[in-house]
Design a protein around this nucleic acid. Sequence first.
DNA 1: TCCGGATAACTTGTCAGGCAGGTTACAGCC
DNA 2: GGCTGTAACCTGCCTGACAAGTTATCCGGA
Lengths: 234, 234
Amino acid sequence: MTAQPAILRLPLRAETPSLVESLADALLQPILAGAWRPHDRLPSEHALAEQHQVSRAVVREAIARLKSDGYVETRQGKGAFVAAAPGGNAFRLDVDGREDHLLELRALIEADCAALAAERHTEGDLRNLRAAQAAMRDAVAAGGIGLAEDIRFHDVLAEAAHNPALRRFAAFIGRHAREAMQLARLSQLREQNRLAEIEAEHGAIIAAVENRDPQAARAALQKHIASGLRRHGL
Amino acid sequence: MTAQPAILRLPLRAETPSLVESLADALLQPILAGAWRPHDRLPSEHALAEQHQVSRAVVREAIARLKSDGYVETRQGKGAFVAAAPGGNAFRLDVDGREDHLLELRALIEADCAALAAERHTEGDLRNLRAAQAAMRDAVAAGGIGLAEDIRFHDVLAEAAHNPALRRFAAFIGRHAREAMQLARLSQLREQNRLAEIEAEHGAIIAAVENRDPQAARAALQKHIASGLRRHGL
DNA sequence: TCCGGATAACTTGTCAGGCAGGTTACAGCC
DNA sequence: GGCTGTAACCTGCCTGACAAGTTATCCGGA
């Protein structure tokens, strides 16, 4: 079961959802659909437990989950209510959504990173970028596919934008995008000898950043992402 | 307590955190700090309950919360483990972070929306944009500040980008940005007679979108956000 | 009739203990 | 040594209970 590298076990989550997960989803539906509107009161824990034929503990855990995501607020003695701005605490990507939207969002975000990096990078940022590229070259030369190094390169680029919120979101969406791209196919990259292509594109990004040319950096990154999609047959 | 409009009650969450919240935070710290690394096993529920002097139910709810955020994974009979990519399920904004980073991220995202909208908008999108602007004008004429209509305008713009993931994130970050901008000061807008300014900027965005000029749309939106910051004294 | 306070009936928050089902480690047998 | 059975752990789920906050009702006094 755990023989596969961790990065590969993506959608194997079909392992029969727990009662809590099922109930949380069931409660989320009417909120997302608008059947339960903000400030509406949810049925009491006791009533929900009886309706769904589970114990109150399960109901409480499901509601706790909705609470932490900002869909529901509770007040002792009064009840549980749909939050004023449901889902405002956390941003989740729809797993069942179309992948191309996710990948495009990633391209936009990383292009923003590149453009900001072009404007704001320090000498240290530039050194880090070059070091990340060198590390990837070494990993490829050593026979790997340089996945970790590629991730590192993109994170260093985001770091050079000098906006922590942007950097964290870039990492978040990058991870989901990589999963959506089915990294299991990564082994094809080596056979098709396309790792050099990636390195060249990274080099173009570095050059644009170094020249402090935001538009060129944005364009280089969008080209890089587009090429990545093509490489993965999307 | 509820006399204030819902949009205004932002950081009044100091209402003494529950045991579950405290414990969830306490468990999250070592994960974020790296003291507990991915694939590490957490203490058992029984041990955690004894350590923190709470019942097992509280421990379970706290862990359920970390699970839904993707920080930990549990397997029946084995225990709870730090996830391979902690926090990968949901993106949260640091509340204690610097506001300017958040506001900049919003500007980038909305500029992306504007640029895409310029490329992809349909006739219907354009009608919606004009209708949203008209609605805001009416609201202002009627003596309001047109907050809901302003939110609507930005959402319609994001919709015209025709990328649901981008639109959802734009709504998410927009809401947090508005909170950070201290909307309580919105009443100043009317006195300072700056609502006309906003309308003019919205008009510039519509014009750029209509001309299918992504760069102009991006620039117009960045100018709009920057002006908004100035209007709010940031 | 009207007002005010006690009270009962809800709600969520927390606790204790228990059973079921999965996993692991170890002792003991072949 | 290798295998097996069992005991000891783990999480998932349940039941029942009490504490504490909120709300509606009823009842007595003015």
